[in-house]
Simulated assay, not measured.
Amino acid sequence: MELIFLGTGAGTPSKERNVSSLVLNLLSERNSFWMFDCGEGTQHQILHSSIRMGRLEKIFITHLHGDHIFGLPGLLSSRSMGGSQDPLTLYGPPGIKAFVETTLSLSGSYLTYPLEIIEIQPGKVMDDQHFCVTALPLVHGIESFGYRIEEADRPGTLDASRLLAEGVPAGPVFQRLKAGEQIQLDDGRVINGQDYLGPAQKGRVLAIFGDTAPGENSLVLAKDADVMVHEATLEASMAEQANNRGHSTTQQTAELAKTAGAKRLIITHFSARYGTEESLRLLAECQAIFPSTEMASDLAVFAL
């Protein structure tokens, strides 16, 4: 599992940063990619990454501001022109369906794959045996959501050496035992896989935020997260300006990570006023409060 940042700027692109988009690489977990936001130029950024659009399974939109959605029509069309027939599910606030259907219709575009559009409400938006995704509203000028992605606990490690020592032959039977099944050997012995598994491995938790000023739901989304991805649009001294526009400062973001008990903070969505050198000051302001802070840059990859 890894996070691939395609755009880390706020509002408008700059020479160093494109507008918002990031991808969660789940090739090892479910042979797919999940995208969060799709600002203008996102498909161009994909060309410089390891992401395969045919394996794009889900897109989660945080809110309908242009720097988070204007890349969607082009990306959806290019995925179709690439010949993909695999289904794609798009999640987003009310209005996302009208936006996508209108732009595709007026441009005469068509899709070669099934596209399901789900307009989300606060609460659980997706839950299967591997992942649960919850969305909660944030504090912004328009309806904006943050997403909490919770991975299911994974089975503990199978004690293969003990099984071999007890005369259980290696092979496909080990996979069944790792799944916790009970099997009968040729000699009549019944082996319960649960007896040979170590402690379950806790699933990972990610909190991925849309644009937001400080608010109560932010703490719920980030509680004990392994990784928290949050905007740090402006420096600490500009709190009033940031909050009035529905954004957070470095200090507010770092304090949230600390209070929530997050293990790791990745900051993104930086104002175009900050160049590469100036951005380091934003990172330092966060690290002074929450040392486990890292700064995202376009095309940066973070292993989780």
Score class of each variant (00 low, 15 high):
S77P: 00
G54N: 14
L64R: 12
G39N: 14
M81D: 09
P93F: 05
D128F: 09
R148C: 01
L64C: 09
D127S: 15
I117F: 04
T89N: 05
D127T: 09
A98L: 12
L88A: 08
G108S: 02
S105F: 13
R154W: 02
F131C: 02
A152H: 04
L64M: 15
T102H: 11
T102F: 04
R52T: 09
L115Y: 11
Y113P: 01
D67H: 14
G146Y: 00
F36P: 04
S80E: 14
Q85D: 08
Y113I: 11
L90V: 14
T112R: 05
V133I: 15
P137E: 07
S50R: 11
H68D: 07
L138H: 00
L104Y: 02
V133P: 01
E143D: 05
G39S: 14
Y110G: 06
Q121Y: 02
R52L: 09
V125C: 02
V133C: 08
R30D: 13
D86Q: 12
W34A: 06
H63Q: 06
V125E: 02
G83F: 09
S78H: 09
I149Q: 00
G66E: 07
H44T: 15
I51A: 10
T134M: 02
E119H: 08
V100A: 11
M126H: 15
L138M: 01
D128N: 15
S105V: 06
S109D: 03
L106D: 06
E57F: 04
L47F: 13
S109T: 01
Q45F: 08
S105W: 11
R55H: 13
E101G: 02
R79D: 10
T112P: 05
T103R: 03
T42D: 12
I118Y: 04
T112E: 08
Y113M: 05
F131D: 01
L106T: 07
G39A: 12
E151F: 03
T134R: 05
L90Y: 05
V100S: 04
W34F: 15
H68T: 10
K97Q: 12
P73F: 06
S105P: 01
L56S: 08
M81A: 10
H140L: 00
G82D: 08
